[in-house]
């Protein structure tokens, strides 16, 4: 796993193994700036505990799921094993996670819950330790402009706008990260340069998918959420798109959560979870 060299972490230490002492009573939290690579190599600096388990909470972007279950699918999901539903789970900043999910396991539901498009779930989703349910509409807009980008399974382009306008809209929604030329460069790279001035509604699904990918990459983000991003692409184009996504994520030191039906080796995943 690659991590940012120095960052502020929250160390949550829990003493275990002491006879007669309830574990929760010996709870201590420390916020300190440490070199995380050093930390991983040599362990924690002494904070006065004999033995402890350590949770690393990165104070920048992390996503945490606590016992999340979508209400409409609750009965169905409770009966089977899942690495995500009804579990406690943390996606650390910069982590590249793959969620493998056969049809009907709630893949898109998960993506929509993470992106705050639906609220019909039990449990908690925490962005930067903040309950996603409590984030108001302007903070949410801010988040979607600066911290999280998304590629929808159903693409969601404006059919009446040209491909270029679709991308441009996302570029100028906030203070632009890239110059407009970057759109042309990315489009060339993915082989859709020739359809940029065509109405998105007239583009093929394959072209639309690549437009949607480019659209997600022209904004700042620390998380990229992708819902079957390559479903309409052939192997060659899939490779090109994955390379572009990987490069853009590395540039931002951003993490991603990708959902797909099958196993794949498009990226160097830090973690693969089964939904």
């Amino acid at each position: 796993m690659e991590v940012v060299a120095a960052t502020t972490v929250k160390l949550t230490a829990r003493k275990i193994g002491d006879e007669g002492v309830q574990a929760d009573e010996c709870f201590r939290e420390e916020l300190m700036t440490v070199d995380v690579n050093h930390l991983l190599k040599y362990g924690l600096p002494s904070i006065g505990f004999r033995s402890f388990t350590v949770f690393l909470y990165f104070s920048n972007m992390q996503i945490e799921l606590r016992q999340v279950v979508p209400v409409p699918l609750k009965d169905k999901f409770m009966q089977r094993q899942s690495d995500v539903w009804n579990r406690n789970l943390v996606f650390a900043q910069g982590e590249w996670a793959k969620i493998k999910a056969p049809s009907g396991t709630g893949k898109t539901t998960l993506v929509h819950i993470l992106y705050k498009l639906r609220h019909d779930y039990e449990g908690l989703v925490l962005w930067q330790n903040k309950d996603l349910r409590t984030i108001d509409e302007s903070a949410l807009a801010q988040m979607r402009q600066q911290q999280v980008s998304i590629i929808f399974q159903d693409l969601r382009l404006f059919p009446s706008l040209t491909a270029r306008e679709n991308i441009e809209l996302k570029r100028v929604l906030q203070k632009p990260l890239y110059e407009t030329e970057v759109i042309d460069a990315m489009a060339e790279q993915l082989g859709v340069g020739h359809v940029l001035n065509q109405r998105a509604g007239l583009c093929s699904y394959g072209e639309q998918q690549r437009i949607a990918i480019i659209r997600s990459l022209v904004q700042p983000f620390s998380w990229l959420i992708m819902d079957e991003p390559f479903s309409h692409l052939d192997q060659v184009n899939m490779r090109k798109a994955a390379d572009l996504i990987a490069a853009e994520c590395k540039k931002r030191e951003a993490g991603f959560i990708l959902t797909d039906l099958d196993e794949d080796d498009h990226f160097e995943y830090a973690r693969v979870l089964n939904l």
Binding site: E137, A141, R144, Q145, F158
Partner: peptide, 15 residues
């Protein structure tokens, strides 16, 4: 629909 998608993509209600 357009407004809904705009908000989905991160357009602020204020904007």
């Amino acid at each position: 629909e357009e407004i809904y998608l705009l908000i989905t993509l991160g357009a602020g209600p204020k904007q």
